[in-house]
């Protein structure tokens, strides 16, 4: 019984990890290709949630989870074109400062537009409740999120590994100088990567609005977790981020099972241990420009 219950916590942790993954994958991609730690990534997550709550009022939940990430991804294009682009080759401190500042501006902007009190959002009645798979209990809604995450994951993997676009991006992560020598400009690729990254963050926001509180600081709360996942997974590695996100979710679930008070600290302990053993992260590759 005890073992089954523990297993249930593990599986539940995997689902939660999937949610972290949506945010962390974009953060990791932007960092790997552009060399910019996008501290404003959480702001796009929050925007995704707010925009989806607005759209839900008029067009319903189904349209909201599709349209909101698209709208936010468009904003991502502007963000890349007019702000991020200036900092690829600059001192990393500058891009940290500018994205950190932007995160604060975005949070205040949300406060001005929508107000400080949280917005109310709910799951459509049809998606409520839990289902039993064998002896395990799952929230029906979270299973849907898991399916969406899996689909996105497959899509991104195919894009990076089976298309010429992906080949350039992967080469750009490793040897931007060689890519340049071949006469390929990385900037248009970066625009797409940022669009994709913030779009995924907004997708996470849209799906989590009904089951978490929609408030201005929600972006600031999630960016720390996403950053920890990226660090644990290691830079430049697709599967590193995937494994790290799932691991963080599972370790949290197991910790809460045995020692609830340590639940929220568990991911930092995990990061500490991983960095001690593998300073580059679980599957982090040796990337020359970051050494």
């Amino acid at each position: 019984m005890q073992f089954t219950f523990l297993l249930e916590q593990v599986v539940n942790g995997l689902v939660l990890g999937g949610y972290y993954l949506l945010i962390a994958l974009g953060l990791s991609l932007i960092f790997s290709v552009g060399g910019v730690v996008n501290l404003a990534h959480g702001a796009f997550f929050a925007l995704g949630a707010y925009v989806s709550v607005e759209i839900t009022k008029y067009l319903g939940f189904g349209s909201a989870v599709v349209l909101s990430p698209i709208a936010v991804a468009m904003l991502g294009i502007l963000f890349e074109r007019y702000i991020l682009r200036r900092f690829y080759t600059a001192d990393p401190i500058l891009s940290l400062l500018v994205t950190f500042g932007l995160a604060m501006v975005a949070e205040q902007a949300i406060r001005i537009i929508w107000g400080a009190p949280p917005l109310s959002a709910a799951i459509p009645p049809a998606l409520r409740g839990s289902v039993f798979l064998g002896d395990f209990l799952f929230s029906r809604y979270r299973l849907l999120i898991l399916a969406v995450v899996a689909a996105v994951l497959v899509g991104v993997w195919l894009l990076l590994h089976k298309t010429s676009f992906g080949r350039v991006v992967r080469a750009g992560i490793q040897r931007p100088d060689m890519v340049a020598a071949l006469g390929i400009r990385l900037q248009p690729y970066m625009t797409v990567i940022v669009m994709l990254g913030v779009g995924m963050a907004a997708l996470a926001g849209a799906f989590f609005a009904p089951i978490t509180i929609v408030q201005p600081a929600m972006g600031a709360d999630i960016i720390t977790v996403a950053f920890v996942v990226v660090v644990i997974g290691g830079l430049g590695s697709f599967w590193g981020v995937v494994i790290a996100a799932l691991l963080v979710g599972v370790v949290r679930g197991i910790t809460i099972h045995f020692e609830p008070a340590a639940g929220e600290a568990s991911m930092y302990v995990l990061m500490f241990v991983v960095l001690l053993v593998r300073p580059r992260g679980l599957l982090g590759e040796r990337i020359e420009k970051f050494e």
Partner: peptide, 9 residues
């Protein structure tokens, strides 16, 4: 409250 409704206990 939101997540309790989600699980529907």
């Amino acid at each position: 409250v939101k997540q309790y409704a989600e699980f529907g206990f």
